[in-house]
Every structure is written in C-alpha cells, then in structure tokens.
Design a protein around this nucleic acid. Structure first.
Lengths: 117, 117
DNA sequence: CAACGATATGTACGGATGGGTATAACGCAA
DNA sequence: TTGCGTTATACCCATCCGTACATATCGTTG
C-alpha cells in the first residue's frame, strides 16, 4: 500500500554491525529518539507505524549486544510501565545523528549524479 | 555458511532509487565494473559468486529504468556472446565510485563511534 | 480485589526473495 | 551441420522476514 516515492532519489544509510548482525542504524536511532520523547516503547512504536514486537526486539538487541544498556524499562505502575533511554543510549544516538548529518551533506552536494541517469 | 565478520563494524551504503525501486547501488556498481573487465555477464556474475539470473536481472533493470543503456550484450558469435559497458554506464560507475570514496573517508574518520558501544 | 496500560514473549501465517533447473535463441568455428 | 558458450527467460520450491494474534506479567489506582 505504501505509495513508493516518485522520481530519482540519491539515498544513503549508515549503520553498525556487531559480529555481522545489525546493532545500530537509522531505524533504531529513530526509535531511541522517540522512546526518549514519549517515555514508552509502545508509543514510540506506534509513532513509527511499527509493531510493538518489532520495536521491543530492536530494544532487546540494543541492550543485549552492547556493553551497556541503552534503554531501561519498567513493568506495571501508574501508567502501566514505561521506558527511558540511558545516558549511554543518548550519547550513541547523538553521535550517530552527527555522523549522519555529515554524510547527508556529502550526498546532498553530489546530487548531480542523478543527472547522469 | 558465510562466516559473518567478527567484531564491531561501522558500515554505510549509498544508492539511487527511481520511483522507489532500486536503480543503482554497490552491487550493480561492482557488477558493472566486472562486466567491463571480463566482457561477459556470466563471468562477472561468477566472479561475484552471484547467479547469472540475478546478474541479468540487475543489468536488465539498469537498461530498462535509465534513460540510456549501461550494458550492450551480444548473443552468439565466437565466444558465444558477450557484453560491454557503455560510456554512459562507465560515467555513472565512476561518479558513483567517487561519491563512495568521499563517504568512506567521512565514515573512516568517525570510527570512534564504535568505542561508545 | 478488579481494572488498566505497558512490558515481555511465543507461535502461526503469508508474501517476498533468491536459487535451482530447464530451455530456447543465437552466431561463429570446425 | 554440429558443437560451443553466452545471452535470455520461464517456472517451481525452499527459505527468510515481517506481521498479526494470543497471552502472561507486573504494579499502581480506584
């Protein structure tokens, strides 16, 4: 159903693998940012149009494969529970966003490659 | 079977979409380069450990979705046939490789992000 | 104690992807 | 005219992946 974007697009993606498995990338970065905003995995997932399970799997991967947890979650309580991004998670997020911006500026300045098509 | 690479890796990828469909990227770039070297789609595919069918599908996509063909192929003949990369294909390939190098240098200089893990 | 909202987790289904196989067309060489 | 190597293309099947669905758990609140 997703109406695929029209026209020519120069795109890029940057990510981190650990032992060949995805550890951090644009999806997890956006998820982390939204968890930080909303204080909830499920709300963040909904905001991204992603299933809770997929979001949880991503969070679980971050916490399991890194040396420090990026998200702390709580069951039960006043609002039924919640989640918060740790300082380590925020630091990784910000560094990733910085790198992404640098890459974006390069890509942007090379848009002319599309004219070769 | 593929022994996934060990350790932390900072990776990136850059590609061109047309109407949301893959048009050009690292795989097609490598394929194009190998076709240019070997003069044959099947040899290039073999060199990449890729099936001929997949390689042909890529080449077909390049020729069908761009405004100019990137590969000209010949059936029959002395060696049974062959393929050559057009000047337009070579130009795109070189521009892509240039852009890729620029991006790589940025990524390389940001390797320290791996220490945050 | 019952309800609520969010975390946590397993299982089952369906679509997309990619590989394998098979086959045909083609043009030169022997 | 037969053989050869490559392009070109159809069809089937195994596998992977995402999504959906179904529960269970937990702790505060009323």
């Amino acid at each position: 159903m997703s109406a695929k974007s029209k026209g020519k697009q120069l795109r890029f993606r940057c990510w981190i693998d650990i032992d060949g498995e995805r550890f951090f990338g644009p999806g997890r970065a956006e998820l982390l940012a939204l968890i930080h905003e909303t204080g909830s995995i499920s709300k963040a997932a909904k905001a991204m149009g992603m299933s809770y399970k997929k979001a949880w799997t991503m969070v679980d991967g971050l916490n399991a494969n890194g040396s420090k947890p990026y998200v702390i979650s709580h069951k039960g309580g006043q609002q039924g529970g919640g989640a918060e991004v740790t300082p380590a998670g925020l630091k990784m997020l910000k560094s990733y966003q910085k790198l992404n911006k640098r890459l974006f500026s390069i890509v942007e300045s090379n848009i002319d490659i599309l004219k070769l098509i």
